[in-house]
């Protein structure tokens, strides 16, 4: 089962990318080869293997519930591409 152009287009929406026609062709070809390569993991039987999501298996790391410093608003908004004196701004998203 190989990756189709339509699959790739769907993934590009899911990952919020927009690929042009040529890019979509290249991506479909390259992803197809890479996915073809990683398919080899399917040959391993892993029924009794616990997944390993972390490189070191630690647990119960907590911070105390104490107030710390927040950023001044100017500093928080400093890197925002579009803002006003108080908020980040995006095109109207009412009803989305």
């Amino acid at each position: 089962m190989s990756l189709t152009r339509a699959d790739v287009e769907k993934v590009s929406l899911l990952g919020r990318l927009r690929l042009g026609d040529a890019e979509l062709d290249t991506m479909t070809e390259q992803m197809g080869r890479i996915v073809g390569y990683i398919e080899q993991l399917g040959e391993l039987s892993t029924d009794n293997v616990q997944p390993m999501a972390h490189a070191q298996e630690m647990h119960n790391v907590f911070a105390d519930d104490a107030l710390g410093a927040s950023l001044p608003r100017d500093a928080a908004l400093a890197n925002a591409p579009k803002k006003d004196a108080e908020c980040y701004r995006v095109p109207a998203v009412l009803g989305e």
Binding site: A66, S70, A76
Partner: peptide, 24 residues
Amino acid sequence: QTKSKLFCRCSTKFGGPPNTQTCP
């Protein structure tokens, strides 16, 4: 009802001026 947020130490207080209770 905690003083600070779930993953940082910013205040959870309601009604503050916009974007004054945030951190990286």
